[in-house]
Write a protein that binds this DNA or RNA. Sequence first.
DNA 1: CTGTTAGCGCATTCAA
DNA 2: TTGAATGCGCTAACAG
Lengths: 338, 338
Amino acid sequence: MVTIKDIAKATGVSPSTVSRVIADNSRISEETKAKVRKAMEDLGYFPNLTARNLAVKSTKTIGVILPSSADKSLQNPFFSEILRGIGSVTHKLQYSMMLSSGQTEEEIYAEVQRIVLGSYVDGIILLYSRLNDRVTQFLVEKDFPFVIVGKPQEVNDRTTYVDNDNIQAGEDITSHLIETGHNRIAFIGGAKDLVVTIDRMQGYTNALKKADIPILEEYLIHTEFLKSGGKEAVEKILRLPERPDAVVVSDDLISIGVIGMLEESGLSVPEDISLVSFNNAYLSEIIHPALTTIDIQIYKLGVESAKAIIEKKIGIDDPKRIIIPHYIIYRDSVKRKS
Amino acid sequence: MVTIKDIAKATGVSPSTVSRVIADNSRISEETKAKVRKAMEDLGYFPNLTARNLAVKSTKTIGVILPSSADKSLQNPFFSEILRGIGSVTHKLQYSMMLSSGQTEEEIYAEVQRIVLGSYVDGIILLYSRLNDRVTQFLVEKDFPFVIVGKPQEVNDRTTYVDNDNIQAGEDITSHLIETGHNRIAFIGGAKDLVVTIDRMQGYTNALKKADIPILEEYLIHTEFLKSGGKEAVEKILRLPERPDAVVVSDDLISIGVIGMLEESGLSVPEDISLVSFNNAYLSEIIHPALTTIDIQIYKLGVESAKAIIEKKIGIDDPKRIIIPHYIIYRDSVKRKS
DNA sequence: CTGTTAGCGCATTCAA
DNA sequence: TTGAATGCGCTAACAG
């Protein structure tokens, strides 16, 4: 390996001078800069990141923590997309991106501890938000810079997060259904302890209330990424005396399952029942019918979260709430009834 | 920050002794070990990874390179899944996982150069394989340990890779169609310059030949993750005098699009036309009809690739071909006709 | 079984 | 504008 010393020797300057031209220090003459740079080129020099990190006490890498593998949500294209968003800014800003996962919550905790206490990252992005999360607590305790993608359960205004306004989004998309003449609207969500599900359902009920449509308990169905239990649940809903004429589904992936189940039950979307959804995953465009869905700008969620920890040094002192705008993508899963 | 010196001082031993108990060196008495460990506990000591890395000249982290963001394939759940697989072994073996991406091929190249030349990673996993890839060439030149997931275009037996036997898989699934009584079988693939597509189509033609079924040019259709051009292409195929009674689709995601398009054309799967697919993404189970598809064990692809660079120190001297077995998942998208 | 010394490769303070 | 010296935190001979 060719080090700073080698090129110093070759150029006849001191190592510190070389170090300075690497940093493009203004107090170095252009001619020595040129001379040194040529030597670097010739000898094939490349700065050792580890050594630099040790010297400057910063790694210019941020850790990205995935939910535990047990979490089914990991199958969601959401993650590829947000990783792309994060990667785009880490790359541009010359940062690296360290990915951490684990089978269990325990493993993840150990992992985070390792990279944080081991000074292996300068900041952390949490790609999940769980209630009473040890990781979050640890980060807060250590006063370590981190940002959560999604809304933290306990908004203790000591944590920065980037999220959509899912309540508003839920209301918007439900209102669209109402405006197009639907009034028996069901809601199908994922795990009911996820904040995102709760928020979207909240928006759903808000819209119903504003339109003076009664909220029926039997129209609220939760399903863990369906297929098994989901099927019967949907069948049940469809056998109600007042069968829904529309359904709000909290995730595109679930929508695909729902459409499949409806078809099995002999119902087609949107002729027999309209459907709206969230996320605007690639799939929502491809499936038949193409989904009318809320684009939550996943990529941007990633971008903003990365910017948050990198550009502004997140600290307990200046927590931020970054809300990414959403908008409705109108496609073919809603039938105008009036 | 509490360092090795601090706890040395506190315990009255030398820094090297402390270092040794960290490494659990056998030549340190149990009592000093205990004493030192207690001090570490009390003072909240945690080894600085960067410093250690510099000293031992190894980072215990492996770089994972995603295809350029331009690549549509990034939307594929494939990546989350393989990342999970890789992560499971890096985690278990106490390694870290550095994720690199970039908008363009150029960016990726710069990134790889940075982490390799900067000694930031001990090995590289390439999550793509492109023809005449600068990155691959660079890695080979530098004699840097790396492994490719998927089959390298030019199998120069100097590179280690982990892949499925996609030719065999293509033949297997096509044969299943033939055995169930189909004989007008079309093939729908993604970009035709992807090795995986080529291999699967090869298997498809192999199966046809073995069954003495003629291979029709007009039954071969390629589509870049359809919707736009894909629709008409499928419609065209359906209008042929000899309409196919089955179709082999090279990716679950594409299958979803295909099913959608068939429906739009008034055809249903598997009643009017059978469909088989590849990957066994989560979706293939959820959609209606549930897909008969090849499980390529994505997770395992990740696991094996990680094991390859970590456990055995990959080198030019011992390239390996690791083939992950595949198997057919029988579900509801194929109609038995005989 | 443990301490001393040196060094990993780079950045930075202090002089000059 | 440049050089010498020191240190980042840890590991690894080499002694003892």
